[in-house]
Nucleic acid binder design. Structure first.
Length: 561
RNA sequence: AGCCCCGUGGUGUAGAGGUAGCAUCAGAGACUCUGGAUCUCUUGGCGCCGGUUCAAAUCCGGCCGGGGCUACCA
């Protein structure tokens, strides 16, 4: 019986529940993630990875990592390596189940021979153009090839010689014999083997005939005894063929289930478009932090956990959809808030001199590393007469709702003192320095008389400050759907401010202890991570995402008014 | 034009004949040594028409709308 309190499940998990209930696969759940190693993994793949590995985990089943490498012209080992790194980083394990479609080339070939023997496949010598012509169109039935009814023995002989390398690329192909007038184009005698005199990243020069996707994929699933073969919507029309092949061969049959791929606003997800951005130099490589690639997101400072949470919370369905970028950022902040140590850093420094603070005095204040995690402990931050604060934290002529520093106003310097601004020193009309005083009674940040201040600012002590270069990243495109614009090429819609480089940032000394890719928060600014390009001399930081910032919104509105 | 898939707040999803829920976004407020976090509240939705039924987001029919399919790619 079905439990009364069935938690909400997506349609795929509902199918699996039903299959488990009826014992279709004896209660086994075995999935696979089958990328073609011809590019880099992106957040869209992460959805599929989380789905396949996630389902296996939930049902106490297994998930294979299988590289679908049936086209030697496009596939390379470097992609295999990067994909393995990315999937591991996301936190999934396939134990000893790392497979390649090419592992099964012998079996696939044998099955093709069997199909031919059964009179259900034939060698066609028509050219690619002719085959295309004969296929007909979506509204017009196709025509049968003149080679379609050649004797089985002849096809067998030709196929054997195709494999032996007697023929040139494109000279002939092996085709399934199905139905040239089938309303589903995929069933109009699909090609299952083609000649390709190309070296394969795994099998080298052993083969010069390679199986097509439709032939290979179902067999790979069948050989691995996959139960639920989960793929994206564009393979829906291929399912009848998937089933047909396995049925004709009389072999084990998984079921194919299709779901909608992930789309995100303000970015592009197709491998081809990403490649274009990389090759044309619009971004700096596949791991550019502006890209939705796993490697780019890793370098940007995304956590595996945030990505996994996102993938599970967006759900799975068959409707085409575009998820708001803001939702990804929400999942990111939610995770980073709980896990990131805090530091103070000033992006656009403004010098502050505390006139009543002794010249050579240095104090240390204890700062909380993570208010969300007591076990993160505390650290000491040095304080002295000359400090830097954020330029944005001071206004000579503050508008309504600006709570920060202004002439005559008192604010708190985090963990330190209440500070009052006495004067703004200007050069050529620009504020270059603030002269301020502290209230010595407020050491630690609280006034004995109980008076309150409206805001707390972060600061960095000038003599102790570390210099840093900071990359500020913003969305890659200026519009939510860069590919949906009729009149414009998506590359013309790239946000010119997607990357800003700040070179004179000042950060507290404790940041020195961080390693490449370490994630942290600069209080009041956002989440950052250490860029791998960081050296002993040059500290390079990447801004992952800003903190939610109500003041920025107010400011924006005020400017409009 | 043929075949296949899909229509629930702005966005992403739940619902399986009986009070349309959750999340995000947006707006308002409380709290705060991060204008962060947290907490409270508010706006907003079943594509359309008909049928079945005491009762339809749900079942049936028609329409409208969106997407996919004509590689020796995957």
């Amino acid at each position: 019986m079905v439990s009364l309190e069935t938690p909400s499940k997506d349609f795929i998990r509902q199918i699996i529940d039903e299959d488990n209930r009826t014992g279709k696969y004896d209660g086994r759940v075995h999935t696979r993630f089958p990328p073609e190693p011809n590019g880099f993994l992106h957040i869209g793949h992460a959805k599929s990875i989380c789905l396949n590995f996630g389902i296996a985990e939930e049902y106490g089943g297994k998930c294979n990592l299988r590289f679908d490498d049936t086209n030697p012209l496009k596939e390379e080992d470097v992609y295999v390596k990067s994909m393995i790194e990315d999937i591991k980083w996301l936190g999934f394990a396939w134990e000893d189940r790392l497979y390649f479609g090419s592992d099964y080339f012998d079996q696939m070939y044998d099955y093709a021979v069997q199909l031919t023997k059964d009179g259900k496949a034939y060698v066609d010598e028509m050219s690619a153009e002719e085959i295309r012509e004969y296929r007909g169109s979506v509204t017009r039935p196709g025509k049968e090839s003149r080679y379609r009814d050649r004797p089985v023995e002849e096809s067998l002989d030709l196929f054997e010689r195709m494999r032996a390398g007697e023929f040139a690329d494109g000279q002939m192909v092996l085709r399934a014999k199905i139905d040239m007038s089938h309303p589903n184009m995929n069933m109009r005698d699909p090609v299952i083997y083609r000649i390709l005199h190309a070296s394969h990243h795994n099998t080298g020069d052993k083969w010069c005939v390679y199986p097509m996707y439709d032939w290979a994929h179902g067999l790979e699933d069948s050989i691995e005894r996959i139960t639920h073969s989960i793929c994206t919507l564009e393979f829906e029309d291929h399912r009848p063929l998937y089933d047909w092949f396995l049925e004709q061969l009389g072999v084990y049959r998984p079921i194919q289930i299709e779901f909608a791929r992930l789309n995100l606003t303000y970015t592009v997800m197709s491998k081809r478009k990403l490649l274009e951005l990389v090759e044309d130099g619009h971004v700096n490589g596949w791991d550019d932090p502006r890209l939705p690639t796993i490697s780019g997101m890793r370098r940007r400072g995304y956590s595996p956990s945030a990505i996994r949470t996102f993938c599970s919370r967006i759900g799975v369905a068959k409707v085409h959809s575009i998820v708001d970028f803001e939702f990804l950022e929400h999942c990111l902040r939610d995770n980073l808030n709980k896990t990131s140590p805090r530091f103070m850093g000033v992006l656009n420094p403004l010098r502050v001199v505390l006139e009543n603070y002794p010249e050579d005095k240095v104090e240390e204040f204890e700062a909380i590393n993570n208010p969300e995690d007591e076990s993160a402990g505390t650290r000491n931050v040095p304080f002295s007469r000359v400090l830097y604060i954020e330029r944005d934290d001071f206004m000579e002529d503050p508008p309504k709702k600006f709570y920060r520093l202004a002439p005559g106003r008192e604010v708190r310097f985090r963990y330190a003192y209440l500070v009052t601004c006495k004067e703004a020193v200007k050069e050529n009309g620009e504020v270059v320095e603030l002269r301020c005083t502290i209230d010595p009674e407020t050491r630690g940040g609280n006034a004995p008389d109980g008076r309150k201040v409206k805001s707390t600012l972060h600061w960095v002590s000038e003599p102790h400050a570390l210099d840093a270069k900071v990359h500020l990243y913003d969305r890659l495109f200026t519009v939510p759907d860069p590919l949906g614009q009729k009149e414009a090429d998506f590359k013309d819609l790239i946000n010119p401010d997607s990357l800003k480089v700040l070179t004179s940032c000042k950060v507290e000394p404790a940041v020195r202890n961080l390693k490449a890719l370490d994630r942290f928060q600069f209080e009041r600014l956002g989440y950052f991570c250490v860029d791998p390009d960081t050296t002993e001399e040059d500290l390079v930081l990447n801004r992952t995402v800003e903190l939610r910032d109500p003041w920025a919104k107010i400011r924006k509105q005020q400017r409009k008014e």
